[in-house]
């Protein structure tokens, strides 16, 4: 029983990360019908920003020890800023000119951006992973045999907070409604006076902010940042978005946790090295049998 609870907690931990990243895929897919292949790299850039920020505080001050809350908050905010900036630049340069191009073109462009960012960071770091300074005590809360790292608790709570904020943003704010309107019908949205270009940028920015923040927190959790770290979580998060029905915000959240928990449980049966395989099998299975997602309702194919 305790083992199962442990697996569940581990699943929720990583699932929260997937859920937060998945929102970026699902939002951008919603407005542009495009998979932003470079989204995982925004996450990676967030993780590096987090490293450089926290490492800077570590080297030049004692703030990491005295007020870790402040340095972590600054790292997260900077991670978001960097990711948002990058996302806006890539939208403007690599995607917007291709808005009317055939489907394959923006997809290939996005793959190009992903390769570019990953390899720039590979060179910038000389192919060396960056190890985060110790901000959180590496100790764990233990309840019976269940172990929970402090950073893990932080990660779980923070994912809930981000998901909640995003949900409120999408449901309650004018910009959120505009995003949903553009996702549904771009032309009619512009007849409402919605600036479609700006709304698409907002969408990219919101997704990127979440990915950047997730990168920082995930970096603290795994304690390292590497240029390739966005790749697998990126695909996993995409899987989560598909599991939840791509384009659906609550679906992406649920899909993230579902995937995280499935992975955690699968390690019990197949071992940790096949965890990635499990995600892909799930992805393929869902795409084949329920392409509209595990939780969503079947909708008529739209143009």
């Amino acid at each position: 029983m305790q083992e199962w609870i442990q697996l569940l907690i581990d699943g929720i931990t990583i699932g929260g990360v997937y859920a937060v990243i998945a929102l970026g895929y699902t939002l951008v897919y919603g407005v542009l019908r495009m998979i932003n292949f470079a989204h995982g790299e925004l996450f990676m850039m967030g993780a590096f920003t987090g490293y450089y920020t926290l490492n800077g505080f570590e080297k030049h001050s004692s703030l990491n020890d005295s007020v870790p809350v402040l340095t972590i908050a600054i790292a997260i905010v900077l991670g978001m800023v960097v990711a948002v900036t990058l996302a806006l630049v890539m939208e403007r340069i690599a995607y917007r000119p291709l808005r009317r191009a055939p489907r394959l073109a923006p997809l290939i462009s996005a793959i190009g951006v992903s390769i570019l960012l990953r390899n720039i960071m590979l060179r910038a770091t000389n192919a060396q992973g960056k190890v985060y300074p110790k901000v959180f005590p590496r100790t764990a809360v233990e309840i019976g045999e269940i172990r929970l790292l402090y950073v893990q608790i932080f990660l779980i709570v923070l994912s809930f907070v981000f998901l909640g904020l995003l949900y409120l943003f999408i449901q309650r704010t004018k910009a959120g409604v505009a995003i949903r309107a553009v996702a549904e019908d771009r032309d009619t949205a512009s007849l409402m006076g919605i600036n479609v270009d700006r709304t698409i940028m907002t969408t990219f920015a919101v997704g990127a902010a979440l990915a950047g923040a997730a990168g920082v927190v995930y970096g603290m959790f795994v304690t390292t940042a590497t240029s390739g770290m966005g790749f697998i979580p990126g695909i996993k998060a995409f899987t989560a978005a598909v599991l939840g029905g791509i384009g659906s915000v609550p679906g992406a959240m649920a899909g993230g946790y579902f995937l995280g928990i499935s992975e955690a449980i699968s390690t019990k049966f197949f071992g940790a090295q096949y965890k990635d395989v499990v995600a892909f099998v799930l992805l393929v299975a869902v795409l084949i049998f329920r392409p509209w997602g595990l939780f969503g309702k079947r909708e008529d194919k739209r143009a």
Binding site: I93, A94, P97, I108, G112, I115, R118
Partner: peptide
């Protein structure tokens, strides 16, 4: 040796935009 993938990435974007 070291920058080929950086260049490929940029080239993919450039080709899609300038000469798809």
């Amino acid at each position: 040796a070291d920058y080929r993938l950086v260049i490929f990435g940029a080239a993919l974007v450039a080709v899609m935009i300038l000469r798809p």
